[in-house]
Design a protein around this nucleic acid. Structure first.
Lengths: 265, 265
DNA sequence: TCTCCACCCTCCCCCGGGGGGAGGGTCCAC
DNA sequence: GTGGACCCTCCCCCCGGGGGAGGGTGGAGA
């Protein structure tokens, strides 16, 4: 039996951290003296301590570490771990995209953007919609768009999406992806929707979506500079996307912000 | 002039976060109504807001974001940013190593480890030592070992290191790297040291140091199982290292834990 | 057997970068 | 002029740790 200090030396976990893990029911000491409260550990617990340490280095939350440790089946364990590795992978994507945006933002003279004001009539579309968290938006988009394209034939235009401003302001909100069709089907999550007519300020984003927020910002600046105000969910139209060409440089996304003229003029 | 809500929609930063950035003097509103406290932003501030957002996605601390934004020279900016990218790179290394360790830890039946008890006589060495934070240990090691190898000729044995247990328990402590020599030189940080004689429990770790803590743990378990207790800084000896062969599989590191027998026997 | 000191305990506060929500003031369009 | 959307500040919570206070314990040497 080892005292907490000895166990700390052997496991390379700090005493404080070991106590925290005890409180979190992550790594219970093999024995606790009921009189003094002293924690005593067994050498068998060293590997467990090290597993915890490594998972923490991967930023696995303590609650998930607990789930991993509790599952006796090594296959389940491996699945949980690789799930987290996948999460890390997507983090890496996020990092890559942030770097790309920074490059564009920090370049000295960003080329001016072309913005067009366009009246859009009401449109009938096949749509998949839902309330989503901002973090899950990309994953949700992938699933929704896959279901949508599988269910649609003879689209009358490029696919698009509507995204509530709350998604970005509060981190969660309504999202809708759609494909315009004359007679939209109804199957699974896919159902017909009529998008209302709006006045749109439209800019076109070129390339991958890594730095699409920069275009958003420039469009927003234009909207404000032209004495307009935004109203309603932003509309994206995927003119050229990954389904058309694998080269991200060729992708084209229209960003349309519903606007109205400020004040009576 | 935009209210905070409008600016939030345009910049995709939450209202709360904008207020926090104001408090942190990161993104000051273009104007603040002294009567009502209302914040008013200018469209020119959208790019700044987006830079902050991206840097935060890279986990750059707000204080560093401030330093980056405050530096007018774009070269300095770029340098600060790439410094953080380098930090991310090393994080990635840490992740890779954690994955490697997990693989070794989660494999069903780890092969038993060979441990040897060895009396080591006092040794004269050329050494570089210092008090280091655990996080900086690897960087410190690289610098110290480089200085050391540059200053030594005719070593009488493999290089090694002594690492205080406090390094792992408290996150900072004393570290020493050395090369055994008959007549150690004195230049820069390099100076002669006589390592005291100790009784060592020695295990050999094979491969890169990614999962060296696993070997530490197994050695510790052996020490405890054999009724010994650890005393003093752990000693590593780099029998085969990156200076000998580029293949990490071939590397061999001796881990020696100073021990003494428990109780009078 | 006693004493001393290293060790252990719990408890509270702090960090950073956000979110939730309460309670109350302000702006503006109808 | 009034309602409701918007804005303000303030406090508490989250996570996973660290610092430190204040006090109890265990075992080695005297």
């Amino acid at each position: 039996m080892l005292t907490i200090g000895e166990f700390s030396r052997l496991s390379h976990l700090s005493v404080r951290t070991l106590r925290r893990y005890h409180d979190a029911a992550l790594l219970e000491p093999a024995a606790v003296d009921p009189a003094s409260g002293y924690r005593y550990y067994s050498v068998d617990q060293i590997p467990t301590a090290q597993v915890i340490q490594r998972l923490r280095e991967l930023d696995v939350p303590l609650s998930d570490v607990q789930r991993i440790l509790r599952s006796p089946d090594p296959d389940v364990r491996a699945a949980l771990v690789s799930e987290h590795l996948q999460r890390l992978e997507s983090e890496l994507d996020r990092t890559r995209s942030a770097v790309a945006t920074l490059r564009r933002l920090l370049q000295p003279a960003p080329p001016p953007i072309a913005v067009e004001l366009r009246a859009v009539a009401a449109t009938t579309v096949a749509a998949v919609e839902g309330d989503v968290d901002h973090g899950e938006l990309l994953a949700w988009y992938a699933g929704a768009m896959a279901e949508l394209t599988a269910a649609t034939t003879e689209p009358t235009g490029a696919p698009g999406g509507l995204y509530d401003n709350e998604l970005f302001e509060d981190g969660h909100g309504h999202a809708l992806v759609h494909v315009p069709m004359r007679v939209p089907p109804r199957s699974g999550r896919v159902h017909p929707v009529t998008l209302p007519a709006v006045e749109l300020a439209v800019a076109t984003h070129a390339g991958a979506h890594d730095d699409i927020d920069v275009t958003y910002g420039e469009l927003g600046a234009w909207v404000v500079a032209n004495e307009l105000a935004v109203a309603g969910p932003v509309r994206e139209t995927y003119l050229v996307g990954p389904r058309d060409t694998p080269d991200p440089e060729e992708w084209r996304t229209e960003i349309g912000w519903p606007v109205f003229r400020l004040g009576p003029r």
